[in-house]
């Protein structure tokens, strides 16, 4: 069936096939293409020798160049660590106060702290530390539940709050609305008084004041100034974490007294290195009115 013809115009033979009078030229591949093809084959053989390629029964050929993507990464990280070590070792050695006082070190810590905050902290505390109303405290103000000194902040970031870490900050507000602790009227009176604490005129002499003095001052102190060591927030100002908006403020207090909510924060000590945590502490301290 194959009938090869010579085509005068192109100077090539046909393949010998014919479909409805259409014949196909059997033009050889361009020389450059053939050379590139064979060059690739030779390159592949070189690649087998140089790079990790061939599987063996229980292992694979490592290649003469000893390439390893994970090894490369380890080297890169080592180089990076060296490049940063000038600052990181200084940060590790310096106290938080020293970092704050040293202008160049502070500059570095602020830049590094900002990046680490964006990746690790802003999910809850918001970019710039604005916080989430009713859930996560605002860091860009001068109200601190567990203390706002450099050391307090550093401690909180390292070990977190009410988590599994043995060093984490722990405290639990008691539920006063259950059992025989406080009845409904008493809770109501107490909420009225606590609400008044944050105004300019606390309701002195009210029944709520007596209940507060008896039940709450152990942690929240007289006048509701709070105790940082226990994470008992100050009640004598208008910064509230779990209160809600103005209309539901009293209900928010009633809820907290009867069914307390407790904020939780993860520990970062295992996840971030010591220098990064210091940078974060300095950065967070700078956000608002760090004490």
């Amino acid at each position: 069936m194959a009938h090869v013809e010579h085509d005068v115009i192109s100077g090539q033979n046909t393949t010998g096939h014919e479909w409805d009078g259409i014949k196909e030229l059997n033009t050889p591949l361009p020389k450059w293409w053939v050379y590139v093809f064979w060059a690739c084959v030779i390159w592949a053989i070189g690649y087998w020798v140089a790079m990790p390629t061939w599987p063996t029964t229980s292992d694979y050929s490592r290649g003469m160049m000893g390439y390893s993507s994970r090894g490369d990464l380890a080297n890169e990280l080592e180089l990076q660590k060296k490049a940063r070590s000038q600052w990181m070792t200084k940060l590790e050695a310096a106290s938080l106060q020293q970092i704050k006082d040293d202008k160049t070190l502070l500059n570095y810590a602020m830049a590094g702290g900002k990046i680490a905050f964006g990746e690790n902290c802003s999910a809850c505390h918001g970019s710039g530390g604005v916080g989430v109303a009713g859930a996560y405290p605002r860091l860009a103000d001068d109200e601190w539940i567990w203390g706002g000194s450099l050391d307090d902040i550093h401690q909180t970031i390292q070990y977190g709050i009410r988590n599994e870490n043995s060093e984490s900050r722990q405290s639990e507000m008691l539920a006063f609305g259950t059992g025989d602790a406080l009845d409904k009227t008493q809770v109501d009176q107490l909420a009225d008084y606590v609400l008044s604490l944050s105004s300019k005129t606390p309701a002195a002499g009210s029944p709520g004041e007596a209940i507060f003095a008896e039940r709450c001052t152990a942690c929240h102190q007289e006048g509701g100034v709070g105790t940082k060591e226990l994470g008992a927030p100050a009640l004598n100002n208008s910064i509230w974490l779990f209160k809600g908006d103005k209309e539901s403020a009293k209900q928010g207090i009633v809820n907290q007294v009867t069914k307390p909510r407790h904020g939780v924060m993860p520990a970062w000590a295992g996840r971030l290195d010591a220098a990064t945590i210091k940078m974060l502490a300095v950065y967070v301290h700078s956000m608002g009115g760090g004490k």
Partner: peptide, 18 residues
């Protein structure tokens, strides 16, 4: 472990809340 359970739930309910 990066975020708290509370954050995960809040975020899954409505990510823009956080």
């Amino acid at each position: 472990g990066k975020y708290t359970n509370d954050w995960q739930v809040r975020h899954l309910m409505n990510p823009r809340d956080v």
